[in-house]
Design a protein around this nucleic acid. Structure first.
Lengths: 229, 229
DNA sequence: CGATTGCTTGACCCCCATCAATCCTCGTGG
DNA sequence: CCACGAGGATTGATGGGGGTCAAGCAATCG
């Protein structure tokens, strides 16, 4: 088990580097690997996780239910990303749900280990601190976008985001299998609206649609749309 | 100057306790006090702050411009709250603007002091960590609300939030002088919409309006509205 | 090859942003 | 003390964005 874990993460990560190298790859640390298939739930809102998950492969959506019963995807996470630190730090049950978008593999790192390292390993603590700071900035940006931008703008932005982070290359389709409903949950709108704007974008020659696949043909025009034109 | 600073914070704070007691009240730390009048800007988006501000008295709005030119208030902060930690930690210019709502007084704590303490004082670091974790949770909640709730729901929620955090007592008017426009920026809508819903709430006997003053008469009904009825 | 699930399109209507006009309030100066 | 001006609050009218319901279509799977 630890053998597998040794390889965990090691490769991907950009930001994770120090953390991953120093911690995840040695250790007692990782308590085995869990595999989930598309659609399976890693953990739910309100659940105590008692640890942190680290995505080894695949992509996860992190979402939250609103009172009206609709799901809002807060962010997507992938190989090398952590999930669960926030709740662990403020010692609360999770405020979010994590669901596999692909088949994924995750490591679990039990709470005690993390707590222990927060106490003793300053670099580790600073790394976590920086992660939270970045997440917070992103969340603030999202708040503004949700409150102020139109669905058209947000969809354009979302497509660019997806292409940048999950596209294979500029003129290739998006790499993760997102349903229209998932995209709607990212944008914060109804699936029909997503579909309508997508076909509008298609008519304008900005994207090409082939089944679920979305090919972005003119990212610069999308960027323009995202800014409100 | 330091004498004044010694009293800084000490009294209010709930969450701040440890941090405030241990740090702010001794020190070299606080580099003097700055006073701002209503409407004055503490710092702007994109500005390097090189430190952290601690609100000594008064209330500040923390906002961000969207591409369409409208302002979105992300949160309100008050005596005992810190602002600027996030940017400092990720070593970026501020992503937010802070503006005085009342006349306020703030302490400034220079970057080097903070960095130094992040290195050497574990309790301090953990305190900051927890603050960020809480802020992140709140921001996530806000994202969902903005994306999914109607203006009516969000206004109801905002009023409850204001009453809870800034009202003197249950049947008193809100304690801070917020313009309709400020409320609109909190809710993420146009000022006219705020006004219309407020007078609707008034017609329903939920609030009482007297000039700018807003008296909340039926918080429980508001709660109900916030959940979508 | 049914059946279930997801995608697409049309129709409808309400919420809300926007523009414009008026009213209110408060501070300032005559 | 009053008049006046400016900024904020309010109300009305209007149009478009986008949520919702419903029906038809494509695709996927046991």
């Amino acid at each position: 088990m630890d053998n597998q874990c040794d390889q965990c993460i090691i490769r991907h990560f950009s930001s994770v580097t120090k953390f991953a190298e120093k911690k995840l790859i040695y250790s007692s640390y990782c308590e085995g690997i869990r595999s989930l298939k598309r659609g399976e739930v890693l953990f739910k809102e309100g659940q105590y996780i008692n640890g942190v998950f680290c995505i080894r492969s695949g992509v996860c959506k992190v979402s939250k239910m609103s009172v009206n019963g609709r799901n809002q995807i807060i962010k997507l996470i992938r190989e090398g990303d952590l999930i669960g630190e926030r709740s662990l730090i403020s010692e609360e049950p999770s405020n979010l749900q994590a669901t596999a978008l692909n088949d994924i593999e995750v490591c679990f790192i039990p709470k005690e280990e993390i707590i222990n390292d927060l106490k003793n390993d300053h670099d580790f603590t600073m790394n976590i601190l920086k992660r939270l700071a970045v997440s917070l900035k992103e969340a603030d940006n999202l708040v503004v976008d949700m409150a102020q931008k139109t669905v058209k703008q947000r969809l354009a932005e979302t497509l660019l985001y997806l292409e940048k982070n999950f596209g294979k290359s500029t003129y290739d389709p998006l790499d993760i299998h997102l349903s229209r409903e998932d995209i709607a949950s990212l944008v914060g709108t109804a699936t029909e609206s997503v579909i309508r704007w997508l076909s509008s974008f298609k008519r304008m020659g900005i994207v090409h649609l082939k089944g679920k696949e979305i090919y972005i043909l003119k990212p610069n025009v999308l960027k323009h749309l995202a800014e409100g034109y």
